[in-house]
Write a protein that binds this DNA or RNA. Structure first.
Length: 183
DNA sequence: CCCTAACTAGTCT
DNA sequence: AGACTAGTTAGGG
C-alpha cells in the first residue's frame, strides 16, 4: 500500500448551461506516444481529448458544445495535459471543464480516484458510488467520457479480467495499460 | 412536457 | 448462452 497523501491533481468543473452558451474552445493537435491526438480546452479547463483527423474532432466538438466558438490555438493547459499522458505520475494540477449528467460526473469523479497502474472492475466503481447494481449504467457513463487518457477509463476492465470495450479501440487500451505498467 | 422503448465499454446463474 | 440490471437517450403522444 502506498501511503502517499491523496492529492487530487484532477479536478472536474461541471459546465453549466450558462457557460455553455458563451463558450470559447481552444484546440490543437499534438503528437503523443499513442499517436496524433487533439486536445481542447475552455478558459477553465480541458473539455475534450480525442483521436482522429481534424474534421472528425471538430464535428465532435460542435455536436457536444453546440454554441461554442472553436479556435485552433495552442494552450498552456494542453501541454500540461500532454505531459500527464506520457507521464502519469506528473504532479501538475489539471482541471476538466466538462458537461455531463449528475450520474456521469459522479462516475468520472470516481475514476479519478483509481490509482495509476492499477486496474479495477466496473462493478467496483459502481459500488464505490453507492449503486452496486448500476454496473451497466456505469459502463455507459464511462463510455461517454470526453477526456480519454486523463480520466482513466482504460484502467477499468471486466470483472473476469477481460478487457471489455473501449471507445477508441482495444488496441489503444492495451497500449496505455502496458505503458503504465512499464513506467 | 411526460411516457415508453431501446440501447449499453457488465455481471451473475 | 441467457437473464437481468440501472441509467441515458431518442422518439411518440
Amino acid at each position: 500500500m502506498s501511503k502517499q497523501a491523496k492529492i487530487n491533481r484532477y479536478n472536474i468543473i461541471p459546465m453549466t448551461q450558462f457557460e455553455e452558451n458563451d463558450l470559447t474552445i481552444n484546440y490543437d493537435s499534438y503528437d503523443s506516444i499513442y499517436g496524433n491526438l487533439y486536445i481542447a480546452s475552455t478558459d477553465k479547463g480541458i473539455c475534450y481529448i480525442g483521436l482522429g483527423n481534424e474534421t472528425e474532432i471538430i464535428e465532435e466538438l460542435k455536436k457536444k458544445y453546440t454554441n461554442a466558438v472553436l479556435v485552433k490555438k495552442a494552450d498552456q493547459q494542453h501541454s500540461t495535459a500532454l505531459s500527464h499522458i506520457s507521464n502519469p505520475d506528473s504532479a501538475e494540477e489539471i482541471n476538466f471543464h466538462i458537461k455531463g449528467t449528475d450520474f456521469q460526473l459522479e462516475v468520472w469523479n470516481e475514476l479519478l480516484n483509481t490509482e495509476c497502474g492499477k486496474t479495477c472492475s466496473y462493478k467496483h466503481i459502481a459500488e464505490k458510488i453507492g449503486k452496486p447494481k448500476a454496473v451497466r449504467a456505469v459502463a455507459t457513463a464511462i463510455g461517454q467520457n470526453p477526456v480519454t487518457f486523463l480520466i482513466p477509463c482504460h484502467r477499468i476492465i471486466r470483472f473476469d479480467g477481460t478487457l471489455g470495450g473501449y471507445y477508441w479501440g482495444l488496441d489503444i487500451k492495451k497500449k496505455i495499460l502496458k505503458h503504465e505498467s512499464l513506467r
